[in-house]
Amino acid sequence: MNGISTTFIVQGALWLLGIFSVVTWTLIVVKAVQSVRASVQSRRFTKQFWAASSFHAAAALEPGVSPVGRVAATGFETLQRADEGNGQDLEHSWSRHDLLERHLRQQIQNERRRLEAGLAVLASIGSTAPFVGLFGTVFGIIHALTAITHSASASIDVVAGPIGEALVATGIGIAVAVPAVLAYNFFVRLVKAASADLDGFATDFVTLAQKAGFRVQGTAARAQPSLKTVNEAFA
């Protein structure tokens, strides 16, 4: 392997680490914004939900973009669609209680997947970046040793420079991996906490729905506000 190809391999490893670093910090910023936004919106909706005068009044709340709001909207929609089903197909063969729990569980899984999006990339970068750096270092050392051989000298002045440059790739690989690993662990912890909150809210939702007989009054009227407006306009 000649010196030119070895140099290209080292430079390619460094460029790849640079791409890894850009992707890592982009994901960190995106996931941080997503987590903060979801947390704020969920707290806001939860406060409005528990401030509602009744379970039926809570059905009129706008879910917005909060995970808790989407879970609640799924629950209310499930109860509404249970009234529309004729019980002749598999979709409506469940009891209202089981049907509600099933759809809430599915929505929680959807929210979890949404929050986990991008974390696999962080985990992959955190685990592979040091090896990419080491890969570049190995070929850098090979190139350095080849240069030393051609110089016909093994003094410290000749060896230190090329070997030191080759070790830079390992240092860059570690520098790229550390933020990725720390960010991954941090966001995984946030996902687990958010999932626990969604599970707790879903349990409370099912309890409230059971007290309401697994029915939501006024949901159909809320779904067709334009018809009432048109009739009033022509009255």
Rank of each mutant, 00 (worst) to 15 (best):
R114K: 11
F186H: 11
P179K: 02
R112A: 02
Q80F: 15
L145K: 10
L100N: 08
E111M: 05
A166M: 03
E165S: 08
I108S: 05
P130M: 02
A193M: 08
A183H: 06
S124Y: 04
V132G: 08
T146P: 06
V178I: 13
R105Q: 05
S153Y: 14
I108C: 00
A160E: 08
H103F: 13
I174K: 03
S95M: 08
R112T: 10
G87N: 04
D98T: 14
L119F: 01
R96A: 09
N185S: 02
D98G: 07
D157W: 12
A123W: 00
A147N: 15
I148W: 10
I141T: 03
G136R: 06
G136Y: 01
A82D: 05
I125L: 00
V191R: 09
A194G: 05
D197M: 14
E91T: 09
H97A: 11
R96D: 04
A177V: 07
D157M: 12
G200P: 09
A82Q: 11
L145G: 02
V176Q: 09
R102F: 13
G118L: 00
R102H: 13
P179A: 02
L198R: 13
A117G: 06
V132I: 11
E116N: 06
A152M: 12
S127P: 05
F187W: 04
K192A: 13
E111S: 07
D83S: 09
F186W: 15
Q88A: 10
S127R: 01
S127H: 02
I141R: 01
A117N: 07
S195C: 11
I163S: 07
